[in-house]
Design a protein around this nucleic acid. Sequence first.
DNA 1: CTGAAAGCGCTTACAG
DNA 2: CTGAAAGCGCTTACAG
Lengths: 340, 340
Amino acid sequence: MQRGFQVTTRRRRSITIKDVARYAGVSTATVSRVLNGSSPVKDELVERVQHAVTTLGYHPNAAARSLKTRKANAIGILVPDISNPYFMQIIKGIEDVMALDYSLLMASSDEDSKKEKKLLNVLSEDRIDCLVLATAGGNDEVIRAIDEKGIPVVLIDRLPESLANTMDSVVEDNFWSAYELAQSMIKLEIESLGIIHGPMSASTAYQRASGCMSAIRQHGSKLTVREYFGDFTLESGERAVEHFLQGEAPEAIIAMNNLMAVGAISELIKRGFVIGKDIMLGSYGAIENHLLFDSSLRYVEQEPRTLGKLAGKVVQRRLEDRHAEAVSHVVKQQLGVTFK
Amino acid sequence: MQRGFQVTTRRRRSITIKDVARYAGVSTATVSRVLNGSSPVKDELVERVQHAVTTLGYHPNAAARSLKTRKANAIGILVPDISNPYFMQIIKGIEDVMALDYSLLMASSDEDSKKEKKLLNVLSEDRIDCLVLATAGGNDEVIRAIDEKGIPVVLIDRLPESLANTMDSVVEDNFWSAYELAQSMIKLEIESLGIIHGPMSASTAYQRASGCMSAIRQHGSKLTVREYFGDFTLESGERAVEHFLQGEAPEAIIAMNNLMAVGAISELIKRGFVIGKDIMLGSYGAIENHLLFDSSLRYVEQEPRTLGKLAGKVVQRRLEDRHAEAVSHVVKQQLGVTFK
DNA sequence: CTGAAAGCGCTTACAG
DNA sequence: CTGAAAGCGCTTACAG
């Protein structure tokens, strides 16, 4: 004869709504109503249910709820580089706004279209109610499919042409900010300029390049320009400087994002250059702790956290009304300077 | 008479496994087998199913799968401050290891026990298969409950005494690293020292304080020590310096984490101090881009990304065998110096 | 190798 | 205000 000895295993069968209902002497429907406040329940039953919930230590099962309600209570965030402080601050901004209402599912594509595609596929398994995406490029069709399947997409930072206008977006004014940055460098009366571009597959890199070149063209004149095509990584900033220094050093360098600027600066310092004296530097995007070092530096102030908060607001609006018209926010940037 | 005109709405009913089965002329069981490779299926049917999947654009529903399999295919990461580069790098390290097999659900407690508790409750709704946690403190019971409920917890960075030994953990050797940092500062033959502590509710802050004070005690002698109790934020580093400078400036300051060090340094610079000359600085943890500025600085090298990778490995091991014995990893740190 | 059917834990019309 | 019951989209013994 068998006895129901129960060995305490690490995972015992979890407590379900049924257990709560039985303990409280009500139906599962009533438990559900109390838990969600979805319709009125007599005070006495409410109390019995609440008591049962706490004594049994019941936690609803998110998967079961999602399956019924078709809401994941989570939003996805997919960025090219989760460890770049710029995207980090955007994420923080989104978190500020979405607070405790939604869980944040995060992933990093490492600027790799293939990896991004895989991640997009995982995220499209109805795990999220909305996707905030800074795309690495090359996945426009997949992105459109996700949006049409019913998971609204909010594009941030990067805005592929083919997707503009059909989805919400929050981006920077890349063209003008780069234009102004270049202009402010040119005003220093330099005669030679090195430009470190980002990958042209990223819309930001392309637009910044356009703005920068436009300022140069408008300037007319005798400016020697050399270009290096990097990939937004710190290492490519270092390589760019190596490249430039194979010839005569330019009087100024502009890096089209923060990481490449850090790479360029550290390579220049290693080679004995004093930034702001031997060579001028412009960066699209501020550099972490730049206030601590005394190099003179011109940079575009991006305020990613503000951008993230705005993106969060856009998500909320979209969640409230999935048929609302798509909005496009273009955030303006300021030019900043650190002085020696 | 009504006609079934179908307006194209943004969310049409999604494609389910049933649709695929019907299209391919097989049972849903067969579709599932093909998708998961869980048992052999005749080649011809495999092809028909695959064809159906791609032409219909089918994506499995994660909630339904989770409900059946009781696996969320996600791991949770809860840290005190998601925008601190230290935790950021830990997260990146975990991501390096867990790759595409698991989604990462991330949250930030902002060093707030109450907020942490709420987040822990959300995460315990069976949304994750494992939780990586750097706790803000004060939630030991909730954490234990989650672990016992069947969601294994891997503690990182912070290790509350009451939880040690029952759960996996990956932490630093806070006591000795702080000891050595303090010792290296004392060796500079200073006569006065300011210490900026973290919040004593965090085990790291407590252990670092112990290590630091132990080095000072062992030194014996005529060292004037002043302490300030901060909360690991940049602002509290600034306030600490303000506080110290109300009296005579100490010859050296030790900040017990990176953010407070940044705050202290920036406040000191603002007041005209030259770090490494007018005042010596020690930091538990490196400072972003510290190679770019020429202050002399002693710091504990934390290598958070390595710690994150190790944590990822521990998670994998735990996922393979939930009954394996709990492991405690203590990662050793190096002392680093930047020279003027 | 394949299919019919049960069931994971919820929510929500429906009937009272 | 309450409960019995259907069903969300999967997976997996079970029987063949």
